[in-house]
Write a protein that binds this DNA or RNA. Structure first.
Lengths: 193, 193
DNA sequence: TTTCTCTGTTGACCTAAATCAACAGAATTT
DNA sequence: AAATTCTGTTGATTTAGGTCAACAGAGAAA
């Protein structure tokens, strides 16, 4: 149940088995079936979710009713609406399971207590945030400067595990493309090889 | 010299005047004239820079030779290449003064010592990073879903202090638009009012 | 002064991606 | 098994924004 989380923590910081055991007690295990949601648009996001098994997505819906995927999270990844979580504001995002999932949830209070008890956990969280920030910076550059084809090729290289498990039109949504466009881009690439 | 920095810190955390005095000693004041650089593409970014006075930009150059502005920083803002700074890797960005500037520089070592001595400084830095992350998330959504006009109107509302001080073609670059396009968008808006 | 460089505008034209629409195989649901 | 939803493809057409080129005013520099 906690294997992925332990791996993720140990990859970034050094903690003792005893600390790991304490750590466990702060998380709420939760199972979601495909299409169930962890967060609904308009609600306040009270959890930081770690994915032990399955795949989640967060998305928002624009005025024209189009869905835009913000993030995918597979095993070993975190997902939340950080803005809503931190400021206790209403979320514009929905977070939903794309497969049956096993999550480990951390509330704000649990997170703060855990940081107090195990200082390394704060470092772990900061490193996650730094990586997420850097990844987002790269995504901005990609969105502003690359063609549809470049975006698709890059996401395939960066997250091969995700494009294999997710419908193609969701990859399109993540990249800010229409499904038809992505289909044509793929055809284009395949005929060139 | 430290006024903007003090304001920025006090806006986010509580620190004593004594702590502020300690804080001072860790920063290296630096003046840059217009067009001088703090970081050159290819170098390792060894400073976290706080802008006391003036305005800075960071940008990268793509394969076709086009410059893309990543960030502006006016008084009270921080600017760095976080990826290069944290991992000591070669930067793809250049950081340059758009006006004569007064900066306060923090090296990695100074930053870590300061965090040790004044724990509140870590919290301050984490809050900055969280805000930057949330702002970047919004920028991704904007880049992927909005029209040229929507992007321009939003940036004008979000950062009025910046669009007044920066040439229009740099705003275009920041938004991923061509200068001609932004010029037309502005004309379009003005004829509608 | 006179030359530059920098900046913003406008026109004519082009192109990448969006839109609209139809279709078909897979996968679910009943 | 039949019906429905989900998914991906393809064609025809439109459109937002890019490209190329010329021009003009504002500063800065010589």
């Amino acid at each position: 149940m906690f294997q992925q989380l332990f791996d993720s923590i140990q990859e970034k910081v050094t903690v003792t088995p005893a600390e790991m055991d304490i750590c466990k007690t702060f998380f709420i295990p939760k199972k979601l079936r495909k299409k169930q949601t962890l967060l609904q648009e308009g609600d306040i996001c009270i959890h930081n979710a770690f994915v032990e098994k399955g795949i989640m997505r967060s998305f928002f819906t624009d005025e024209k009713g189009n869905e835009h995927i913000v993030q995918f999270a597979i095993e070993g990844w975190w997902i939340t609406d950080l803005s809503s979580f931190l400021t206790k504001s209403n979320s514009i995002y929905t977070i939903e399971a794309l497969e049956d999932c096993e999550l480990l949830l951390l509330t704000m209070e649990a997170r703060e207590t855990l940081i107090d008890k195990i200082p390394m956990f704060e470092r772990y969280q900061r490193l996650l945030l730094q990586n997420a920030y850097i990844a987002n910076q790269a995504r901005i550059n990609s969105a502003l400067t690359e063609t549809a084809e470049e975006k698709y090729v890059k996401v395939g290289l960066a997250y091969p595990g995700i494009i294999k498990r997710v419908p193609q039109h969701m990859i399109a949504s993540y990249l800010g493309l229409k499904p038809e466009t992505l289909s044509r881009v793929r055809k284009q690439i395949s005929t060139r090889i």
